[in-house]
Design a protein around this nucleic acid. Structure first.
Lengths: 240, 240
DNA sequence: ACTATTCTCGTACGCGGTACGGGATTAGGG
DNA sequence: CCCTAATCCCGTACCGCGTACGAGAATAGT
């Protein structure tokens, strides 16, 4: 299991994983397909959350035996990587570039946000595992690099900016989803509010008390995202 | 299990979790302590990665029976939240504020980065679960809010900035750790390089090819972090 | 001493990923 | 046209996980 903290050394050879589409000449014909299995896993994650994606449930969803999945992906971690690349296909074709790299970068971030809202498990999945750079991910990365062409950034810096934007979108969407989940459960929201009120009243957290005493702003998540994204991209602009 | 994508509605009442330190008057004396159990879990995660933190291994580490842990934390998810708050205690006392909120914010981010490098499982843990705002986390949040006092930001915006900075640090450190893990395994690094070279040579990814053709920059992760942090904080400055 | 309360922890259950290996299906070579 | 090698299908089984249950031990108030 890959743990995202880099403490693993395992993994699958990317070439083996992404560049091997030539059919073997002998042997039984496959009854399923990698794409169908991946799509089933994505549908399951969308409908019931990422924890619902178990080898058994995916298999039953596609009508296969559990162990048959291992003919298409060497392990579950790989299946998760396939899922990420699969949904990244929804980012193609991207909006055409305008030549204004700030605007283009913001459009990229908004597209990523929309994707993550459609697939709420995506922010977590992106953060946990090492990027696997499948074909769809690579196509979007290529697009992002093209958007950054007008800048004076070198190759490495462009990659960093892309990682930063993706991470930014993932974080904001994760907050957004958590907030929505809290709002959907009045009981939990009330418990949280009670706790924070108790902390604010203990006298040791004056700044927090003040921050919480302000009226709740009526801002939509969209507006918050757009505002912070503007600040962030403007900041990237300030330098080289 | 909390999944970070907000699809859970469960969880523990924060007041119950953090504000209940009064001892019961009757009954057997506890043989262990929440702090000792949490510390053992942290040590395990530091040494062998977050996946090594299982109830059985933590219990054997503290010399307890497995089920005894459940007298101190209602479930594993809660134990992970305790771990996060535990290591956040290392952020206290923070550097005194200078009054220059940009510099103070950067110092906060650097402290968080150092903490995450000491506990490589922390970025993932922070991203996955909903913030639990234990006492140590709250103390640092209070500090961050104080740092932002010179700004004109309202309470909600200050909280957003803190979340953003924390997320930024987590993302950068996660990349940093992944990069280090890759470098530590020449075999995997070579496989990755071969794959990217093959992609760059296919003619469909000219921007990527160019980005990769540039010489590897000799920048340290520290410099990269500092540079991007500067850009980011400057960007926050640009607005209100 | 009795009793209520609290803590300890052995046992057990259900579920997870996946190693193993035998049977089924296919394509090429004689 | 069979034979052989390759490939895929998948039932069974193993081990490890989180944790529900409940019996026994320790403690404090009566």
């Amino acid at each position: 299991m890959v743990r995202g903290d880099g403490s693993d050394a395992g993994g699958v050879d990317p070439q083996q994983l992404w560049l091997n589409s030539d059919r073997p000449r002998k042997g039984r014909k496959p009854a399923f397909s990698r794409a169908a299995i991946t799509a089933a896993a994505v549908a399951l994650a969308d409908a019931e959350g990422i924890d619902a994606v178990t080898m058994r449930r995916v298999a039953s969803q596609v009508g296969a035996g559990v162990m048959s999945l291992y003919s298409y992906a060497p392990d579950k971690e790989t299946l998760l990587q396939l899922m990420v690349d699969h949904v990244s296909g929804e980012l193609s074709p991207p909006d055409p570039l305008t030549g204004d790299w700030r605007a283009d970068l913001k459009a990229i971030a908004h597209a990523q946000r929309a994707l993550m809202l459609r697939h709420p498990w995506l922010p977590t999945a992106l953060f946990n595992r090492r990027w696997s750079l499948g074909p769809n991910t690579l196509a979007f990365l290529e697009h992002a690099l093209a958007a950054l062409r007008p800048t004076a950034l070198d190759g490495g810096a462009k990659l960093e900016v892309f990682s930063l934007i993706t991470g930014f979108a993932a974080r904001l969407v994760a907050d957004e989803i958590a907030q929505a989940a809290l709002s959907a459960s009045p009981e939990r929201a009330a418990a949280e509010a009670r706790y924070l009120a108790a902390v604010a009243a203990d006298g040791h957290h004056p700044e927090l008390a003040e921050a919480l005493s302000a009226p709740v702003r009526p801002l939509t998540p969209d507006a918050t995202f757009a505002r912070l994204l503007d600040r962030m991209v403007d900041g990237l602009d300030a330098g080289s």
